[in-house]
Nucleic acid binder design. Structure first.
Lengths: 150, 150
DNA sequence: TCAAGAACCTGAACCGCTTCAGGTCAAGCT
DNA sequence: AGCTTGACCTGAAGCGGTTCAGGTTCTTGA
């Protein structure tokens, strides 16, 4: 703890919650600008600013933005109010996508619950119940995977 | 429509809803057994059984099973009642995982909604509202990404 | 019957990372 | 000074597919 003029990669990881490998990868592909290096060791030294960016990107990734969308967002954030409309649209699109995913996920959870019940019934040899559950599965499957017509 | 002793890959796709590329990929890695070929053209001909397996796998993939889990499942399904306990556990694990994902997704949706509100406020120059929304974002971010301490 | 276009084929490259192998560097113990 | 341990480095390969390039084969309609 001598100079303290930058965070090590481990410290950056502790702050943004992303794996080291991802930090290196994002730098490699130019999503974040090249990180300064310690003169002697050539190890990365993250600035406060770098870490703030990573924190934001971590959230954006968590909600499902693609690399390209994150690039777009960063560019828009740099332009400020001028790009506010585009930023709003970007987030609206993803909010919408997430709402859809939420519905799909709820169905899938029900499907898995039924699968548990089905194999549970077979486990204890209750074939009547197994048949009942299998019948419940049919209509659900069609809603999960509409192409599945069986 | 001469012989009708098997489905073409396009027909299989229509039934299971998976992309062609995935069908070829799963065959390549041995998740599904090698599909019979038409003698003259070498094109794949899927049996009824093949298609039924693909339909099931499509559902399992949709709910998030890994390739390895799907292999395990197929092996268990072949063993029948004897493996019922293992199958139940497999599905319980995934049902649990999905329930957790559902909670996380709900939080993320709220995060995106706030992001929309934030940029919407900036778009119309309502800085007070933008600041209010930004303040609401803080605690939410900590719940989405606990490592994010800013 | 022959040419065009659709459907299919394979192998390789790409995506967004993660993992692994093999090597460098800094700090602490002996 | 030498040695170990741990953090860090790079480049390459792996994962689960998807996409693309380049080449057959099937179908169809003029």
């Amino acid at each position: 703890m001598v100079d303290k003029d930058g965070f090590t990669i481990a410290e950056a990881v502790a702050r943004c919650g992303l794996p080291e490998s991802t930090l290196r990868y994002w730098e490699r592909i130019g999503l974040v600008r090249p990180i300064e290096r310690d003169e002697s060791s050539r190890h990365r030294r993250y600035s406060h600013d770098d870490v703030a960016t990573l924190e934001t990107l971590a959230n954006l990734r968590a909600v499902g933005l693609s690399i390209e969308d994150m690039r777009t967002y960063l560019a828009g954030a740099r332009r400020g109010d001028e790009a506010a409309g585009e930023q709003r649209v970007l987030f609206e699109v993803h909010a919408r996508r997430l709402a859809d995913e939420l519905n799909a996920l709820e169905l899938r959870r029900r499907y898995l619950d039924l699968k548990v019940q089905y194999w549970s019934a077979r486990e204890v040899g209750d074939l009547d119940k197994a048949a009942d559950v299998a019948e419940e599965l049919g209509p659900l499957i069609r809603r999960i995977n509409p192409k599945d017509t069986v």
